[in-house]
Each structure stands twice: as C-alpha cells, then as structure tokens.
Amino acid sequence: MSNNKQIPEVDIVVDEKAGVIREIKPEQKLRSKSGHEKRVNVGIYTILTLMAIIWLAPFVFLVFQSFRSYLTENGGMVNYLLPKTWSLDNYIWLFTDEKSLFLRWYLNTLIIALFNAVLQTVIVLSVAYALSRLRFKGRKLIMNAVLVLGLFPGFLTMITLYFLLKQLGLTQNGAIPGLILIYCASSGMGYYISKGFFDTIPKSLDESARIDGATRFQVFMKIIMPLAKPIVIYTILMAFMAPWGDFVFASYVAFGTTTNYNVAVGLYQWVNVADYQGFFTRFCAGGVLVAVPITALFLALQKYYVEGVTGGAVKG
C-alpha cells in the first residue's frame, strides 16, 4: 500500500486521454487497478499457455511416433511417448519401399486438390456473383432450393453417385477425374460465404460502370474481381484443403484399385484394416507429411480465412 499515492495520478491521466475527468473514490483506489490488471493478465497467460500445450500436444506426439522405427523398435502402438531411438525408417519406407504407394497417393490427391481449387472457385464465384449482384426471374427459387437440398445429409446419395460415376467410367481407374467431377458438380451450393462478401461491395460501383457502357461480364471481371481478392483466396484455400481429408467417398470411388487411392484412403486403411500389422508409425509419418504442407499453407493464408469465416458467419 506504500505506492497508494501514485495511483490516482495514473488513473487521472488515463481518464484525461479518454476525454473524461472523473473523481476517484477512495474505495476504487483500494482496488489497485494495475495490480488487478496484472493478476488478470497472469491468469490469462496461464490459461493460454495451458491451452497451447493441450492444442499442440497431439501433433507433437504424432511427430514423435513418426520417428519410432517400425524395423528396430515397434511399428504398432506403444504406451510411451519418446522413441527409444530416433530414426527416419518410416519416412524412408514411405518414399523408397517398392510396396509403398504413398507417393502415388500423394500425387493423386495433389492433382485432385489443384483441379478442385481452380474449378470449384470458378463455379462458386460465378454462382455467388449471379445471386448477389444480378436480379433475374427464379433467383429466389434457386436460393430456396439450395437451402432445402442442403438439409439432406451428404452420405445419403453416396451409392447413387458411385453408380452414376461408374456409368461414366469414372470409378476405379477413372477415380481421380471422377472425384474432381463430384467435388465440383455440387460446389455451386456452397455460395453463401462468397455471396455475403459480394453483398458488401457497394452497388454504386456497378451502376457507374454500367452507365459508362460496360457489360455485366466486364463489370464482373474488371470491377468486382479485383476487389474480391480475399474471398477468391479463401475459396481456393478451402477447395484445395478439402480433398485431403476425404476417406469415405474417395474409397468408394477407387473401389479397390490401390493405385487410385487418395492419401486419406491409403493411410486410413493402415490403421483400420487388420492386414496392416505394425503400420501405425508409418501412418503417423504419412500423416505428418500430409499435415505439414497444408498447415503451412493455411497459416500463411490465415488472414483470408479469417475474413472468409467472419464474413460468412455474420452474413449467413
């Protein structure tokens, strides 16, 4: 309490900055503000540090497991954390073993993700732009129909989609174009977030351009698109990330032709099919190799993601 005298001064300075001068009552003085603030901050730091540990732990553990050799130690599950000897055997197996199709799966997924990123972005932005900026007969109908269709669970139609693709020859050896087709075909229904973004661009921009004689196509390409960079990047990011995690439908479409698996299907079977004994550490290594580039990409483009989800959440 020896520094009690100084507190009023500090408080008054702060209040002056806010443009208000207030009398400070003795009771308030007792609750030493900076002390209180400090305690709160220490509490917050503690919570955040704890959370950071909990949030990072599984990933760190995963990385640890991936360095436990399946050859010299144990490729299955163990009840200790740190490998007894650190080794790259799992990674070496993934890349060099002649039985390993990991690189193939990785490439498959990359191809799907790249095509998906381009095509899906074009489709989503087209739909969003049309529904946001253009007014035409049937606009409301389309939006309501999408709302209703969206309430049906996706897995319901899996078997139908499989046979539709099969009719087009896009299963098994055609699995990769098949998956791209399916991912893109219905992607127009995910226009909400982009539409929300377009809605925020002032209409006057279009109107003045139209008066200057620009067609709607030119308005779209020359006026709106340059402004839409954040949402374009957001859409590309989402479309690129999604195919990496599909272990259900991708498995259906590849239908037992291992060379056409995506990386999720391939890795998933290592932990879920009894034939793969001792593949757990290799699964971890594969998982790390999938997670690292995607996480890096995501973190690099985090800003756009935040703009996307925030906009989407607010505008519904």
Binding site: M51, A52, W55, G287, V290, F298, Q302
Partner: peptide
C-alpha cells in the same frame, strides 16, 4: 497455435 486443428486433416 489454436488454428492448427483446423488445418490438419
């Protein structure tokens, strides 16, 4: 740190 759970499949 927190958003890593979103990024990792």
């Amino acid at each position: 740190i927190l958003v890593m759970t979103i990024a990792i499949p």
